[in-house]
Design a protein around this nucleic acid. Structure first.
Length: 563
RNA sequence: GGCCCAGUAGCUCAGUUGGAUAGAGCAACGGCCUUCUAAGCCGUAGGUCGCAGGUUCGAAUCCUGCCUGGGUCGCCA
C-alpha cells in the first residue's frame, strides 16, 4: 500500500520529488519510453562524497537504452531541473552512479513535524489497517520460561509494536497447551511434590517436571491445605492438581511476561477448542474437502498435497488426537475471527512443523502467505565465557526471571531485539550485566539522558523552550546529519514491519544515538553568546528526544532521565 | 541421508533484497574532560565475505556443487 503525500515527512517528500524528476528526465532525454522506465532507486550513500542521495538509474537503463551507463548518466542529468528538486550539484561517479547534492535547508521542516506528532512520530499507514494476529511465546504451562521463550517474547512484542506503528491492527495472542499429555504430567508432578511436602514417600514421574516452580506449587498447596488432598481418591486428586497447577503456572507466566513488558490481548485455551467442538468440526471440514483418509487404524491429513514431505496423522489409532489436529482447529479459529494475516513466532525446534501448518492453512482454503512463521533461533548463554546448557526438564535452565534479575529488563530486551531472529545468538551475561561502555544498551539510553540533562540545565538557566522559534540557525553539517537520521525513522519502522525484522530498530537507534553523540561533542546546544541558536537547538534536541523515545518504546526499553 | 538456519575483522553481529573503497560495537593502538554527564567524541589498525564454479555492466547478496557448525526429521507436544 502506498503512503499518501499527507503522511510523508519532508525528507520523504524530497525523495519523491527527486524520484519524479529523475523519471521525467529519463523520458525527456529519450532514454526509455514512459512505460519502460524502471522504478527509481534512491539510496543514501554511506560516503559523504557521494552526495545526499544517489541513483543507479543509468546502470538500470543500459539494456533499454543500449548505451554505456556513464553516457546515459550524462544525457539524463542534462535534462534535470535543478530548482525543482532543490539540487545544488550533480556528480556522475564510479560505474555510472548519479550523485545528488541538495540544499539541505528543507530538512529543518522535519522538526515541527516530529514535535507535532510526538509519541506518534514514526506512525504510518503502510499497513492500511490490515488485521494481523501475532501468536508468540505459547510455552507449555508446565514450567518457567527459559531463554528461548525470552527471546521469542522480546522479538514478538517488538514486532507487534512495530506493526502497530506501521498502521496494522495487531492482536497479540498466547496459545495455552492445556489439553495434552503434558498437563497430565504436570498434575502428577504437582501431586508428587505435594505429597513430598507432607513428608510422604512420593517419586516424580520419569517424564515429570523437575523445575523449582512445580516444587513450589506443591509446597504451597501443602501449606495452604494441609493433607486435605492426600486422602482423596487418586483420580479426584489429580483433577484438582491439574486445575490448580495450571492456574498457578499461568499466573506465573503472566506475571513474568508482564514484568518483561509483554502483555497479550488474548490467552487462548486449547481445551476451549475441545469444549466448543471446533476440533471435530475442523476434522469434518477437512474430510469434506477430501484431504483426509484412514490407514493403519489412524486418520491422516494429505499435507503432502501442499508441499509437505509426507502426510501427517490427525487421529492416532487409540482414537486420540495428535498435537496437529487441535492446532489446525486453532488456526481455523484464528482465520474465522477475520484476521487478514497470521504471524507465528516459533522456536527453532519447531521449524520442521512449518510445512504441515502451511499445508493446513491451504487445505482450509487460504493462500499460503496468509500465515508467516518466524523462527527464533537457539540462544547460547555464556557465563564467565562458558556455555550454560539449558534443559527445561531437569530444571537447570536459566529462566526469564533469573535473567531479568541478573541482567535487568532493559539490557535483556535490547540484547534479544538486537539480533535478527533467525540467527543463532550468543547471550553474553557478563557483557549484558556490565555497566560500562561495553554494553550497547547504555549507549542509546545515555544519549537520551544527555538530552534530559540539557533540558534540565536550560530550565535552571531560565531559557524558555519555544517550539515556534525560528529554526534557521540549525544549519551545521552535524545538525543536518542528525535531521536526516530523524527523518529516516518512519521508513525504518515501515521496513522493519514489512520484513518482520525488529533488529532494524535497534540498529537504527544506535545510529541515531551515534549521530547525536557526535553532534553533542562537536557543538554546544546552549551558547550564552547566541540566544537564537540556543533556542533553535533546544527544539532540535526535543525532536531527537522524541524520536529516541519512540524507538525505545518499540523495543520495550526504558528511556531514563538520569544515569 | 532429507529438509531448515548459519558461516563476513581477534570476538559478537549488521549489510536497506544485485551497486561505488564490505560496515558497526567490543577488544588493540593514539589523541580529547576549567565549557550542556568521558556509559561520550575524534583518529589509526584490522577482511581470500566458508570453498569452487556459474549468471552480468556489477555478486557478501541470485543459481549449482562441495566443506563446517547447529536444529529437525514420532500415531510426542
Amino acid at each position: 500500500m502506498r503512503r499518501t503525500q499527507a503522511t510523508m515527512n519532508s525528507m520523504e517528500q524530497m525523495k519523491e520529488n527527486l524520484k519524479a524528476e529523475i523519471a521525467s528526465a529519463v523520458t525527456k532525454a529519450g532514454l526509455a519510453a514512459p512505460e519502460e522506465v524502471p522504478d527509481v532507486m534512491l539510496e543514501q550513500p554511506k560516503e559523504k562524497e557521494h552526495g545526499d542521495f544517489a541513483t543507479n538509474m543509468a546502470m538500470q537503463l543500459t539494456k533499454i537504452a543500449k548505451k554505456n551507463p556513464r553516457q546515459i548518466a550524462e544525457e539524463l542529468t542534462a535534462e534535470m531541473d535543478y530548482a525543482k528538486a532543490s539540487i545544488e550539484k550533480i556528480d556522475i561517479a564510479g560505474p555510472g552512479f548519479i550523485n545528488f547534492f541538495l540544499d539541505n535547508a528543507y530538512l529543518r521542516e522535519i522538526i515541527p513535524a516530529v514535535l507535532e506528532a510526538g509519541a506518534d512520530y514514526g506512525r504510518t499507514d503502510v499497513g492500511g489497517g490490515e488485521r494481523v494476529q501475532v501468536e508468540f511465546v505459547s510455552a507449555n504451562p508446565t514450567g518457567d520460561l527459559h531463554l528461548g521463550h525470552a527471546r521469542g517474547a522480546a522479538v514478538g512484542d517488538s514486532l507487534c509494536n512495530i506493526l502497530d506503528m506501521a498502521g496494522y491492527n495487531v492482536t497479540r495472542e498466547y496459545y495455552i497447551n492445556d489439553a495434552g499429555n503434558q498437563v497430565e504430567g504436570l498434575a502428577l508432578s504437582v501431586e508428587a511434590r505435594y505429597l513430598q511436602a507432607l513428608g510422604h514417600e512420593a517419586a516424580l514421574p520419569e517424564d515429570g517436571y523437575h523445575g523449582d516452580d512445580v516444587k513450589e506449587i506443591g509446597e504451597r498447596l501443602a501449606e495452604e491445605n494441609g493433607d486435605r488432598y492426600a486422602g482423596l481418591p487418586e483420580e479426584e486428586r489429580l483433577a484438582i492438581f491439574r486445575e490448580l497447577g495450571l492456574k498457578k503456572e499461568l499466573d506465573k507466566l503472566k506475571a513474568d511476561l508482564s514484568a518483561f513488558g509483554v502483555t497479550f490481548d488474548e490467552w487462548f485455551s486449547e481445551t476451549a477448542l475441545y469444549e466448543s467442538g471446533e476440533i471435530e468440526e475442523t476434522l469434518m471440514l477437512l474430510k469434506e474437502k477430501g484431504y483426509v483418509y484412514e490407514a493403519d487404524g489412524a486418520v491422516w491429513f494429505k499435507s503432502s498435497e501442499f508441499g509437505d514431505d509426507k502426510d501427517r496423522v490427525l487421529v492416532k489409532n487409540d482414537q486420540t488426537y495428535t498435537y496437529l489436529m487441535p492446532d489446525i482447529a486453532y488456526h481455523k479459529n484464528k482465520l474465522d475471527r477475520g484476521f487478514d494475516s497470521l504471524i507465528n513466532i516459533w522456536g527453532a525446534d519447531h521449524h520442521g512443523y512449518i510445512p504441515r501448518m502451511q499445508a493446513a492453512i491451504q487445505a482450509l482454503g487460504y493462500a499460503h502467505d496468509t500465515l508467516d512463521v518466524e523462527i527464533v533461533q537457539m540462544v547460547n548463554l555464556l557465563r564467565s565465557g562458558e556455555k550454560v546448557k539449558m534443559s527445561k526438564r531437569t530444571g537447570n535452565a536459566v529462566t526469564l526471571r533469573e535473567l531479568m534479575e541478573d541482567v535487568g529488563l532493559d539490557a535483556t530486551r535490547y540484547f534479544f531485539a538486537m539480533r535478527s531472529a533467525d540467527t543463532h545468538m550468543d547471550f553474553d551475561m557478563d557483557l549484558a550485566v556490565s555497566e560500562s561502555n561495553e554494553n550497547p544498551v547504555y549507549y542509546v539510553q545515555y544519549a537520551h539522558t544527555r538530552l534530559c540533562s540539557i533540558f534540565r540545565q536550560a530550565d535552571e538557566r531560565g531559557i524558555t523552550y519555544d517550539p515556534a522559534v525560528d529554526l534557521s540557525p540549525v544549519a551545521s553539517e552535524k545538525e543536518y546529519d542528525l535531521l536526516k537520521k530523524i527523518g529516516e525513522f518512519p521508513e525504518v519502522v515501515a521496513d522493519a514491519a514489512r520484513l518482520h525484522a525488529p533488529h532494524r530498530m535497534t540498529n537504527y537507534l544506535h545510529e541515531l544515538a551515534a549521530s547525536f553523540h557526535s553532534f553533542y561533542n562537536a557543538e554546544r546546544v546552549m551558547d550564552q553568546e547566541n540566544e537564537a541558536k540556543t533556542k533553535a537547538r533546544l527544539v532540535l534536541a526535543k525532536a531527537v528526544q522524541i524520536t529516541l523515545q519512540n524507538g525505545m518504546r518499540i523495543i520495550g526499553v526504558s528511556a531514563p532521565e538520569r544515569m
